[in-house]
């Protein structure tokens, strides 16, 4: 056998340092991580919509969306909910602690098809985490896109992620931010109340053929949001959504993320509404 050093092994996680973390809301934490190897950190690039596999030795590995934009290289950002064994261990990590990552994986959003078009980003709950990547990508390359609409809904004001950041965006003139909560539990909420589809009433007239939509949210949300986008006559292949599935390898070998005969990890996680009409089980 050839020397082991010559064997390419896509499964070996690379060490990365937690450079900063803070709580977004209860049980939801924001992490900034950087490859320990500085050269690797600076050369590491990805597409908005891609994900990484994150390991803690002994606790296992799981996929997480990248929430930062490749237009701001060097640091990877993730928003993570404490929901299982691995994330519980991750929440015990402190700044400067080492975790292990590999990737990026998946296809990411079809940015080339989005250029020159008006962009409608529709996020529900945690779905805003992967969409934050494309949101900032569009803002960082503002001249390449048309108008930008950012629709974000959460259950209540206490569950709005990136609240400060997103409310600061409201001051910008080159983006229209529409936020809503299902129920205003705080009594101090200044934005809309109701499900995220209600925000579509506030959109100005759009040219559907020159518009692209990206959607991410809980499974129940897709059906209703897509109905609204179809009412606007946006072509089915210009509606992209990013999906979650169980994943173990990230590279199309372990089988778990299979949908019909596609793998979410290599054929997705971004699929168009058109894809979902041809491949069952997508949404």
């Amino acid at each position: 056998m050839t020397k082991t050093q010559q064997i390419e092994n896509p499964y070996i996680p690379e060490p990365a340092r937690i450079v900063r973390h803070y709580d977004l809301v209860k049980d939801h934490r924001f992490f900034q991580v950087r490859h320990v190897d500085m050269k690797r950190a600076m050369s590491f690039t990805y597409n908005p919509g891609q994900f990484i596999m994150l390991s803690i030795p002994g606790l296992g590995e799981a996929p997480f969306s990248i929430s930062s934009t490749p237009s701001r290289p060097g640091i990877l950002e993730m928003g993570i909910r404490k929901v299982g064994k691995l994330t519980e261990a991750l929440f015990k990590k402190k700044d400067n602690d080492i975790i292990y990552i590999r990737g990026p994986y998946g296809n990411g959003f079809k940015i080339d098809q989005m250029r020159g078009k008006d962009i409608i980003i529709v996020a529900g709950g945690l779905g805003v985490i992967p969409l934050r990547s494309i949101l900032y990508y569009v803002l960082d390359n503002r001249d390449q896109f048309g108008r930008l609409f950012f629709l974000y809904g959460a259950k209540n004001p206490d569950e709005i992620l990136f609240k400060t950041e997103f409310f600061q965006l409201k001051n910008r003139v080159d983006i229209e931010c529409l936020y809503t909560v299902d129920v205003d539990t705080s009594g101090e909420w200044t934005e809309a109340v109701g499900v995220v589809t209600r925000l579509f009433e506030h959109l100005p007239e759009i040219d559907p053929s020159r518009s692209a939509a990206v959607v991410c949210g809980p499974p129940v949300m897709y059906k209703y949001v897509i109905q609204e986008l179809l009412k606007l006559k946006i072509p089915k292949n210009q509606i992209q959504m990013t999906l979650e599935r169980k994943m173990e390898c990230g590279v199309g070998k372990c089988g778990h993320c299979v949908l019909d005969h596609l793998y979410t990890c290599i054929d997705g996680p971004v699929f168009t509404y058109w894809d979902t009409l041809h491949f069952r089980e997508l949404i």
């Binding site: 030795p57 002994g58 606790l59 296992g60 590995e61 173990e248 390898c249 070998k253 372990c254 089988g255 778990h256």
Partner: peptide
């Protein structure tokens, strides 16, 4: 199809193996 499990060695250190089993 396969699944991966991290298995600690029986020591006090962070040491072990990432095991792959048919799923």
């Amino acid at each position: 199809c396969y699944t991966l499990t991290d298995v600690f060695d029986v020591t006090n250190k962070t040491e072990g193996r990432r095991e792959r089993v048919w799923d």
